[in-house]
Design a protein around this nucleic acid. Sequence first.
DNA 1: GGATTGACGTGTC
DNA 2: AGACACGCCAATC
Length: 108
Amino acid sequence: MEQSFYDQVFELVRLVPKGRVTSYGAVAKALGAGGSARMVGYAMANAGMTSPAVPAHRVVNSSGLLTGRFHFSPPERMQELLEKEGIVVKDNKIKDFKQLFWDPLKEL
DNA sequence: GGATTGACGTGTC
DNA sequence: AGACACGCCAATC
């Protein structure tokens, strides 16, 4: 298994600054995978099995929606973590998503 | 090695 | 505005 597309996703997501968020599509694009945004999300399934764990809660879909919250141990965990970092979550959605959005392509 | 799948994205109805 | 459809692409079965 070694270095695979997943590992690249993990590493990049781990680079997401605290209090910021990014989207699956953006990550995929940053990795050069372009349309494989779904793979990014799928990779996050193992996010909690990596060391250190990947802050998957900082990754949302293009709408700033916490689509994968149900994949967390307690689904509420995702929103809690985000709010802890100063991110406001309203109805599974990130408030001011545009402002909090962290584009790996731009920042890296 | 073909078929299935999926924490997505964008467009259309 | 909400629901539905199709496309992309790599990992897994």
